[in-house]
């Protein structure tokens, strides 16, 4: 972490720099700002969602240095030096990621609000275990809640993505 700063209003800020989906980010933030608010607010990357705010639902899941993390329980300054991947980093305008394609084709979403976090959790799983069994799928997605699908479509999506 770099030196602390004082803003005009007298509020203390800290500097943070990290890679967001490959792009270098450097800015001053409040030391109590959550990573999710930095991503959704300051950086306007609203694919990452906020739902419970206490790390229970996984809607705000992101990858920090390749590991799955709930961004509502991370402070923004904790991203210092990290490589962060959010849902926006998985696809470009034309081409969707194979996991996203599987979610599309197998009905892995309905309202879509848990989907970015769910896709990140699935990516984290498949990156380390390309052919997960039932137990591995249940374990990897157990931190992500979905209220719409009953998980049937999500399980089929992950199975479909894993066989590709």
């Amino acid at each position: 972490m770099e030196a602390n700063h004082q803003t005009a209003g007298g509020t203390e800020t800290v500097s943070v720099s990290f890679l967001l989906n490959g792009e270098h980010i450097q800015l001053n933030v409040s030391p109590v700002m959550r990573a999710v608010d930095l991503i959704r607010g300051e950086l306007d990357q609203t694919g990452t969602k906020i739902s419970c705010g206490i790390g229970r639902c996984g809607a705000c899941s992101i990858l920090v240095n390749g590991k799955l993390a709930v961004s509502c329980l991370l402070l923004a300054y904790q991203l210092e030096g990290a490589s962060v991947i959010t849902i926006e980093g998985l696809s470009d305008q034309d081409e969707v990621h194979p996991i996203q394609k599987a979610f599309l084709e197998e009905g892995g979403f309905q309202c879509g609000y848990c989907t970015p976090g769910m896709v990140m959790a699935a990516k984290c799983l498949l990156d380390s275990n390309p052919e997960p069994d039932r137990q591995a799928i249940q374990e990897a997605l157990s931190g992500n809640l979905c209220r719409c699908t009953g998980y049937g479509g999500i399980i089929r999506s992950v199975q479909c993505a894993s066989s590709k």
Binding site: R40, G41, D44, T46, G47, T48, K49, T86, I87, E88, L90, S91, V96, Q100, F103, L104, E105, E106, G108, F109, G112, Y113, T115, P116, V119
Partner: peptide, 22 residues
């Protein structure tokens, strides 16, 4: 497979929900 019209925006996180607006 029949893909939902709102699907691509949802799985890519591009869909702006009304709570995402600024």
């Amino acid at each position: 497979k029949k893909i939902r019209p709102d699907g691509k925006e949802k799985v890519t996180g591009r869909l702006k929900y009304l709570t995402d607006l600024a």
